[in-house]
Amino acid sequence: MDDASLVKRYQLGDIRAFNELANRWQSKIHRFSYGFFGNADDAGEITQKTLIRVYKKAGELEEPGKFSSWIYRIANNLCLDELKRAGRRKSSPLGSWSEQIAESENHIPSRQLESKELGVIIQNALLTLSDDQRVVIILKEFEGMKFREIAEILDESENTIKSRMYYGLRSLRKILTEQNIQPEYLNYD
């Protein structure tokens, strides 16, 4: 059964339909918010708040077919609210993190990097991006959404989304190059 059918059943009072939706979406929302904050606690809180909001508002959702865009929009708004509430302490300024890593680890050769370490580097690199670029990269690169879908979620034009994607990727490229990762992973083979 697809999401739209589950939403319709939930709108008719079937709580099991909501539980099925929650089961389907909690890992996606958690992954999305984890990419946003790089922190499992914050990601868990955003996931919970998102699902509670879905629980309260899905009954009024006029277009159940657009549930996917709707739930990501809720999660994105909650992430932005959390950043505002926390006074932007949860994101790092561009460069500060990479300088810190470069000094402490003395430019680790790429071949010594394990996947987990690389994950941490990429996660931290994501945190240095602007919120607009970060959310686009997460939705595109880790959630595999189309530019059209991302534009719908963020209520922006497709060209704007592509532009954010382009500049976000370039920033990531710059950070990864500074971390001396390119010899092994960034070759063009």
Binding site: S27, S115, R173, Y188
Partner: peptide, 16 residues
């Protein structure tokens, strides 16, 4: 190449 690097990791956390 940047995409290739990003494709080697996932954002999943075990603490869900």
């Amino acid at each position: 190449a940047t995409r290739k690097v990003m494709g080697t990791v996932s954002l999943d956390s075990d603490e869900l």
